[in-house]
């Protein structure tokens, strides 16, 4: 058996997933993506078995090329957004069911990490509590997130700032400071 060599695609998607996995495992701790932007997430996660929504034509094309079905916000298993959405969107996102909570959506959106509003995170993956600063996401978003989710149902969020990524799983409690 000859050992296969990883292609560039494999190398990049492997590193992207590593960042995603650790970002979600340690909510609030920023990780570094090998390539800035959301397209790298699509390469690592999305294919013909996915239903995605994006408000960004370019990302939508990339996802479609990967084979994903393009659907409305409320049907998407992954959403790639170009800006913080109106908090009202959170009430229509897929949250899974009691039996299959994993059917809840993954929401990917940009924001500025390290400046702005201070948030206090607690829950699995957080050693006690952690405070982070995120700019560009209004208070109402976090309130809506808290109000619409009934754990273990819910959705999970990735916040991207260039090549920085923060994960906020549904299990994280967020307090706006």
């Amino acid at each position: 058996m000859q050992t296969p060599a990883p292609s560039d695609f494999e190398t990049q998607t492997n590193a992207t997933y590593d960042a995603l996995m650790w970002a979600l495992s340690r909510p609030g701790m920023a990780r570094k993506l090998p390539v800035a932007g959301q397209a790298s997430l699509i390469a690592a996660l999305i294919d013909r078995e996915c239903a995605i929504f994006s408000d960004d034509v370019h990302l939508m094309q990339i996802a479609a090329q990967a084979g994903a079905q393009i659907v409305a916000q409320n049907d998407a298993d992954h959403l790639f957004l170009s800006a913080t959405p109106d908090p009202s969107i959170l009430s229509v996102l897929r949250q899974g069911t009691d039996i299959y909570p994993e059917d809840g959506a993954t929401l990917v959106m940009p924001a500025v990490i390290g400046h702005g509003m201070a948030l206090r995170l607690t829950g699995p993956g957080v050693d006690g509590a952690v405070s982070i600063k995120i700019d560009g996401i209004p208070d109402a978003f976090w309130t809506a997130r808290r109000d619409v989710m009934r754990y273990p149902m819910g959705f999970d969020i990735f916040i991207i700032d260039q090549d920085q990524i923060i994960g906020i799983p549904r299990s994280t409690a967020i307090e706006v400071l």
């Binding site: 995603l20 909570p101 809840g104």
Partner: peptide, 11 residues
């Protein structure tokens, strides 16, 4: 990968 992320999100 997709399933692992959900597993992490719902311990």
């Amino acid at each position: 990968r997709r399933k692992m992320l959900k597993a992490i999100a719902v311990p």
